[in-house]
Write a protein that binds this DNA or RNA. Sequence first.
DNA 1: CGGGATCGTTACGGAAGCGTTTCTTTTTGC
DNA 2: GCAAAAAGAAACGCTTCCGTAACGATCCCG
Lengths: 116, 116
Amino acid sequence: MPIELSASQALNLWHAVSLEQVRIDNRDLTLRQMSILLHIYLVPPPHTVRGLAGILGVTKPVITRALDTMGDLGLVARMRDERDRRNVIIKRTVDGALYLEKLGDLIIDQGRKLSI
Amino acid sequence: MPIELSASQALNLWHAVSLEQVRIDNRDLTLRQMSILLHIYLVPPPHTVRGLAGILGVTKPVITRALDTMGDLGLVARMRDERDRRNVIIKRTVDGALYLEKLGDLIIDQGRKLSI
DNA sequence: CGGGATCGTTACGGAAGCGTTTCTTTTTGC
DNA sequence: GCAAAAAGAAACGCTTCCGTAACGATCCCG
C-alpha cells in the first residue's frame, strides 16, 4: 500500500521530524550514520563493512568510523565472522532497536499532524 | 488530511530517503543544517540567527556556522536588516529551493514505493 | 605451502563541527 | 550623550569526520 504525499506534505513531514530529532536527541547522528543504522535494522543480515560501503557508495573507512561512533553509543555491535575471520558481522543491539523505535514513533506522530 | 503510517512504513520511508540522499548528493548536510534549511523555506520569514537558535535549541554560533556552510553551497543567503542593523535576515535562494524540491520529490517517490 | 587477493582497520593531513568566550556594531533607555 | 543591552560574528581549543594510502590478518588456489 503506497503512500501518496503532496510536495508540501513531504517536506513538512521531513521538517517536523528533523526538527524534533534535533531538539530531543543529543546524539546527533550524521545522515550517513543514520542510513547505516537504518539499513542494519531494516534489511536482513548479514551485514559487512564492505557490503555497506558498496550500498551507500562510500569508502570502507567511512563505515568503520561510523561503526566506531555508533558502537560507542551502544547502537550497534561488531563480531568477527568465525567462518571467514576476515569478515566482521555487524549486529543489532537493544539500544539501537529502541532508538529506531522512538524515531519511528516520531515519524508516525508528525505524519498524523500533517495538513493540506 | 493526516497521514497514517505503520511503524515499518515510517522507518522504511526514512531509510529509503536517507539512503538515496547519501548516494545521490555529495553535499552531505548535517541533521541540524537540514533542519535549518527546511525551516527557512517552510516557515514564513523573517528568520534571524537568534530565532533559529531558539527554535532548534542550539547556541548562536551553531547557526552562524551552518549559515556559513550553506551560504558557501549557495543554499541560503544573508542580508542585514536595514531597520535594525544588528539583525541578519536569512534569505532563500534559487539553488536552495531547487535542492529542497529534489528532496521533496525523493520523499514522494519513496513513499509511493512503500509496501505493507 | 607460498604468492596473491580480500577484508577490515589504522595512519595521516586537512576540513568542518562543537561549546564557550570574547569582540564589534547597533540600538535602547535614562 | 552615554552606559547597558542585544545581535551576530570571530577566536579558541577540542573533537570528529573526510579521502587516500598503507597495514596486518586471513583465505584462496595453483
